[in-house]
Write a protein that binds this DNA or RNA. Sequence first.
DNA 1: ATGGTTTTTACTGCGTC
DNA 2: GACGCGGTAAAAACCAT
Length: 318
Amino acid sequence: MVSTGNKSRPAQSGRKSKFITCPECGGRKIARIPRSGESVCANCGLVISERRIDTGPEWRAFTADERTARTRTGGPVKYTHHDKGLATTLGWRNTDSSGRKLSSRRRAEIARLRKWQLRSRVHSSVDRNLSQALSELERLSSQLELKRGVKELAAMLYRKAIVNRLIRSRSIDALVAAAVYAACRIRQIPRSLKEIADPSHIDWKKVGRHYRLLVRKLKIKMPIPDPSNYVPKLITELGLPGIMQEKVLEVLDRAKAHGGLIIGRDPRGLAAGAIYIASILTDNRVTQREIASAAGVTEVTVRNRYKDLVRKLELSLP
DNA sequence: ATGGTTTTTACTGCGTC
DNA sequence: GACGCGGTAAAAACCAT
């Protein structure tokens, strides 16, 4: 089977190959990388990142504990291992399996879990709601290609929503989407309401309402949106050279220092205006229209921000 | 609900290729 | 003439009160 010497050994990782062919070289062997979930052609190394339907479990686990805790054989409704996983996992001594003392941080974490264990045992409907929400969260965040930490944060927010009795008579999916959106905002990840609402088949306005509810009821302190966060995304979307980014950020930094220019303004518009300026300054002209559509604002807004920036920062353009 | 602020819509004029 | 750009007025959206 292995005919040449430089082959990697995907079979060794314990995962089976998928029965698809590599679009690049036509190779039959596609190895799955367990951790990342990516598929790689064993022959040419092409990463096959097509959105395929994942028939495996929608969760990932990094420790044995997590694995047992997350397994829900038979689907979420019929039989939830949720409870069992927790109950068998958590003893009442603050030591780990080898008898060592746990760190205080870890101990606090375990205490929280115990609390949840109690709660979820008592409120089985809450439990079911949570597991349904978590699977929706998993689905959404994989579709949005969210970073792991953001997903965790969203899950945490959802749990808080449960504790604060915010879930009653509200759509699970909408709340999950709202939690995801909130998590993105907190972590300063530029994702519009629409982007998140779109794959979750929930009306974008509805998600917005639930988002505001979350922020209000959970007293979340939202960081002021920073236009700089939109820059990398826009640069790549417009196919501009990465070096330009520095120039754009420089303009934005000066704008921030100047004050009065950024408060209350749509950060996307600011980013768009700064990019337009940088595109002139670095001679990588992009039309206002292109920038506007990439940033999701109007040409007028691009112009206005651009005009503001030029005037306030006293830039001299060619 | 209301009022103030910002963004969008829609339209026009100017210059260039 | 199509296109990019700049401007404007009025409508709409947004936000705090």
